[in-house]
Amino acid sequence: MNLTDEQLLDIYYWMRLTRAIDERITLLYNQGKILGAAFSERGHEAISVGAAGALEDDDIVAPMHRDLGAYLVRGLPAREIMAQHLGKVTGTSRGRDSNMHGLGDLSHGIIGFVSMLPASLPVTVGVGLSFWLRDEGRVAMTWFGDGATSTGKFHEGLNFAGVFKLPVVFICENNQYAYSTPTSRQFAIEDIADRAAGYGFPGIIVDGNDVLEVYEATKAAVDRARAGGGPTLIECKTMRMLGHAFHDNAEYVPDELLAEWEKKDPVAQYENALIEREVLTEERRQEIESRVRDTLEEAQAFAEESPMPDPADLEKGVYHEPGCYWEQQVNSD
């Protein structure tokens, strides 16, 4: 694979930014500034960034609650994501949806998800269907967890995509748990990738903590889909490093398992690899780090200074009509 040094550093930037925002969200939750629930994608950065990075601008993504990196790579501004977490009107959903939910913006090619996992999967198949019907050469991609593969939506969606050979890439984040449920109680097979055979397309396994491996495998699947070769299921093996959501201290996860995966931290691992390859110099590292910090601090300041939604807007925008709420600017001061 021929990624230039600049491309490699770009990936590094997104990984660092994702980690930094993720850690800040964790902090804000612990400070009581995020109401309700919120999720961490710690340990999933290679999957969200690596897979999203393999797409072209006019492709479409439908990420889920552990894919902060995918939203960022697609260009959704960090400040909007931060404002969303604080329930502010300047958040992507204007305070209507919570945390990573509803971070949808088609101007960035992003479809926001709902909690009924993996509802975005059959929807992504539909996106792929439209690309196929209109012969557009575009690709649709969605992410989902190991738990989500137990649902009818998963199986129905894969089957449909297989029959029509749709240009869809399915990214499964096998982080070994669905809330408190280990994969051994979720399905009776070892590898989710095996499911693909039943639907007539390839299923492959990658190290979900190795961003370049994720990128490479996804790029190949995307190229194949674009060329009319049909869907691919990519199972990324990883580990959920924190609880299901922040309220969950995940006592049910053995410490040794976490310790083992901590050594494989995707961000640190990639950083070390780039240093070893002399792509990441100390100077570049500092430069990237300061860009990350600037974006992060600006995002938080913006979110904190933004107003809450106006209760008078509560009932606006349930239906679309010309000039409706979503076609108006919100007053953000």
């Binding site: 309700g36 809450m308 939604p309 106006d310 349930v318």
Partner: peptide
């Protein structure tokens, strides 16, 4: 409640 989805933000949910 009005005929809208249940909103998240406190200002909206309290109105809802």
């Amino acid at each position: 409640a009005p005929d809208t989805p249940v909103p998240y933000s406190p200002t909206l949910e309290d109105a809802f």
